[in-house]
Amino acid sequence: MNIDALIDHIGQHTVNGLFKGSIYALVALGYTLVYGVLKLINFAHSEVFMVGTFAVLGVWSFMGATDGPTLPSALMFIVVGLLIAAAAAGGTALLVERIAYRPLRRKNAPSLVFLITAIGVSLVLQEIFGFVLAKFFGRPFGRLVVGMPNIVVSDPVIRLPGVDITNKHLIVFAAAVLMMIGLDQFINRTRYGRGVRAVAQSPDTAALMGVNQDRVIMLIFVLGGIMAGVASLLWSVSFAVTKFDIGFVIGLKAFTAAVLGGIGNLRGALLGGLVLGVVEAYSSSLFNSNWEDVTAFVVLVVVLMFRPTGLLGESLGRARA
């Protein structure tokens, strides 16, 4: 226990935690959306994030990105990276739903079958990037960690006493909050969002009212994929590194965040992600970095003991504006 280290740098640890938590929150949205509508834990979602990071790596190498570009070209890399990552991740999520889940739904497969399929899809996607593509194309695919160019060079733009907030922190906070607000408004205010809420509340009634269930399900997979794509761009900008199994730990944490906040609840995913990030940052400072997972899960268990449905409670359908 090193209480001084935590207290002396509490501001910096909070910023670092919120930074990491924002990325967890964006990935958590994918779990929560799918769970809210289908009551399915889509374990393949972590690999959707991984595909996003490789898409960013691909498009940046294609555009000839190097370390520390000028501001206009950095902006261009970020925007193009964002579009490509969102398209790749959204597309992967959609493919997974069409190829893996829809045939099962058609046959009314029991939910355990969905679960094992999700884990299978996750492994298949990992092995495609870690093994199959590596056989044909070599690096950057394969088992080893790959670096990306540093598009944004870390620069403490806001200096408070004891706290440096860098441009990377600001980009990630701003993007995460904007995406959250956008998604929240989309679900709560638009016609499509109403369809999503309707199917989440009662699939059969929604179908009787003329809501096309398949289309709603495709929509939530694409939305979740796009959020994971944005997260993968933010990850690439922040840490500039990826690997075939990069999604595993992040996916696990994001899923934890979703459960912590109340799975099926969009705002819960944001809250859960941020809380988890901060708890991890504090515990790495208080103990050692290898304690962060232990502490994160202890907090999860304790919260679920008192609030079994998470901090904000579950249900996408009942989430109010």
Binding site: A5, H13, N16, F239, V249, S284, S289, N290
Partner: peptide
């Protein structure tokens, strides 16, 4: 500091190195 395998974010350790 001790980190763990598969970890990919090292902010906390970096903070300790800086301190």
């Amino acid at each position: 500091d001790k980190v763990q395998e598969k970890q990919s974010n090292f902010d906390a350790t970096i903070q300790k190195v800086k301190t």
